[in-house]
Amino acid sequence: MTGPTLTLEGVTKQFGRVRAVDDLSFTVRPGVVTGFLGPNGSGKTTTLRMLLGLAEPTSGRGLVGDRPYAEHPQPARLVGSSLDPGFHPGRTGLAHLETYAPQVGVGRARCREVLELVGMGDFGDRRVGAYSMGMKQRLGLATALLADPPAVVLDEPANGLDPEGIVWLRGLLRRFAEEGRTVLVSSHVLTEVQHTVDEVVVIARGRLVHASSLAELAASAESGTLVVAADPAGLARLVADRGWTAEPEGAGLLVRGIPAAEAGAACFAAGLELHQLATRTEDLEAAFLRLTAVPEVAA
């Protein structure tokens, strides 16, 4: 199975005076899990809604394979999706699936099957009004999986899932990618998906700020060296002489972008007595926060 490539081509969405999504372009390939990341309100859901034909882009377009989602004859067979899933509280979980089954092109047996798949086999005959948040999240997933689709687009699928459910979801998405399907998962927390995704697309304030493999994002994480010297004034002079950027941390200075060996050698050459020399690496979460941080407004 090879899933369709999902493409966003210069997509912009303007709500009145607010530009929710600004000239956003990226590609989601089959065979890998792509994480679509950004803080709350960065435009992730709006982007997904435009990709799936629920909202009209102000300009640009989203494609599933070679054409927009809505131009496929039975698009839900191609892309299984769950965006802010809503449920009628008076309908049973099974009946919820059965109301969408005809247009997805599956029978009632498949509805039972996906309920089993998401671990809800025993709850299909209960009304959704009695479901917990996690159960609703699983039912939303079941709806997305009805067609056994070659591509899945999930908006914050881990919300409300218990740790066991998150592990299960991770395994499912990994398996989908290995089968060659296209998998796009949005999240506002990188650490939540860092064990799941291969590729990351990071947006902030509606704009693309980073797109690469997760490994490349990790490699781009900034490192530095913590230096604690017996003579803080001498250390400060050294940092200034070398033109390093540093900030105070504890009793010493955190020197950005300079490996420990280089910092240590410089201190030795300057005759500084060192009390501590330690490599500091920014973790993925910090890298993510740096990418998505609101830039300081120039005075």
Binding site: L52, G53, A70, P75, S81, L83, D84, P85, G86
Partner: peptide, 18 residues
Amino acid sequence: TSEFRHRTITQTLLVEPR
């Protein structure tokens, strides 16, 4: 109206965009 009230309209339009 119940589709709008319970937000099931989203999934309805996902399976039938026309």
